[in-house]
Amino acid sequence: MTKQIKLSQIVPDHLYGKRLDQVLAEMFPDYSRSRIKDWILADAVLVNKQLCNTPRHKMLGGEQIDITADLPEDERFEAEPIDLDIIFEDEHILVINKPAGLVVHPGAGNSDGTLLNALLHHCPGIAEVPRAGIVHRLDKDTTGLMVIAKTIPAQTHLVEAMQAREITREYEAVCYGAMTGGGSVNRPLGRHPTKRTHMAVIENGKPAVTHYRVMEKYRAHTRLRLRLETGRTHQIRVHMTFISHPLIGDPVYGGRPRPPRQADENLLVMMRNFKRQALHAIMLKLAHPITGQLLEWHAPLPDDMVALNAALRADTQKHGMDFV
């Protein structure tokens, strides 16, 4: 479903010589540059009552702009009273610490009980923002920090900052294998050629870059800190599997549990029962989309990952090995 909007404004003189798409982006900052370009190409923009579908058309200042365009109207979802762990909130944005098991957006098999349903209950006005203000996602069983826009201008600026790689996102993870040092994975990602719900490293995929460093070395596992340059679906999980260090508990890319030799019963039980990828979004840093203030948040490791690290650390010490 769509809803029609009408926008009218006179081009300010100080925008003389700029292209139509640039001018409209400055005049109507509530809408993204890509959306404005789509409107121009879809014959939705009039300049001095004349159709103009050329984004590079030079403006002189003083022109009358009229836009009649369709905006996709989100499917109506129900508000649900689901508890949120709110780290920060003002009238523009919301930062939450997402728990494991919470799906971000309704989809096949998850029509309710999602973060989106919770947001509609917590902040009813967010229903007017596309995707209820969700600008990036975490997998169902990944925990940690997410930022949500409460207004269209905030969403537009956050999406542009995300695309410009101006938002810093760091994660903690525990992977198989004793790694000797940090590094980066720079390999494109796309849909798996045969398993359509999986992602994979493929040559014609979208660019994807993951940086990682070692935080602790265990006997046969490693605790990592990771930073994303891009935000592709399952990026960390696929990249770590690609370099033969899949995440503990990953049900899709991790394979069966592989405890170290002569592990005690506590660690064996811990690894058998760890049913989600050991991945947590621990730090988020961005410029506030409206005020420009630089903000940074941290979310402590969830209890299951604290316990997993403790069990691996105890196993390492028991066998007379140092850990970092």
Rank of each mutant, 00 (worst) to 15 (best):
L94K: 12
R19C: 07
A79P: 15
R35H: 07
I126N: 05
R35W: 03
E78Q: 09
E73L: 11
I67R: 09
R33I: 00
L120N: 11
L119F: 06
N53I: 08
L102G: 01
I65L: 13
D112Y: 05
P72M: 09
N97M: 11
Q9P: 01
P81F: 02
P72H: 14
P55K: 02
Q50Y: 01
I40C: 08
L46I: 02
G125D: 14
P72D: 07
L84G: 05
E63H: 10
P124Y: 13
A25Q: 05
F77R: 00
V45P: 05
H57M: 12
H122F: 04
P99V: 10
L20S: 02
P55I: 10
E91M: 08
L46D: 04
L60H: 14
Q64A: 15
G101N: 07
L84I: 08
M27T: 02
L24M: 06
W39K: 02
I40F: 07
L102M: 15
V104A: 15
I93G: 04
H122M: 00
P124E: 10
T114R: 10
V11L: 10
D85H: 11
N117W: 11
P72C: 04
G101M: 07
D30K: 14
E73R: 13
G61M: 12
G101E: 08
P124I: 11
T54C: 09
E26C: 03
H105W: 01
R76T: 15
D85Q: 03
K98Y: 01
D85G: 00
P99R: 03
E91K: 11
L71F: 07
V103N: 04
A108I: 10
G61W: 13
E91R: 11
A127G: 10
Q22Y: 03
H57Y: 11
G113F: 13
V23P: 04
I126S: 08
L41P: 00
L41K: 15
I126M: 13
V11N: 04
L115W: 01
G17T: 01
P106L: 07
E91P: 00
N48R: 06
G61I: 07
G125K: 10
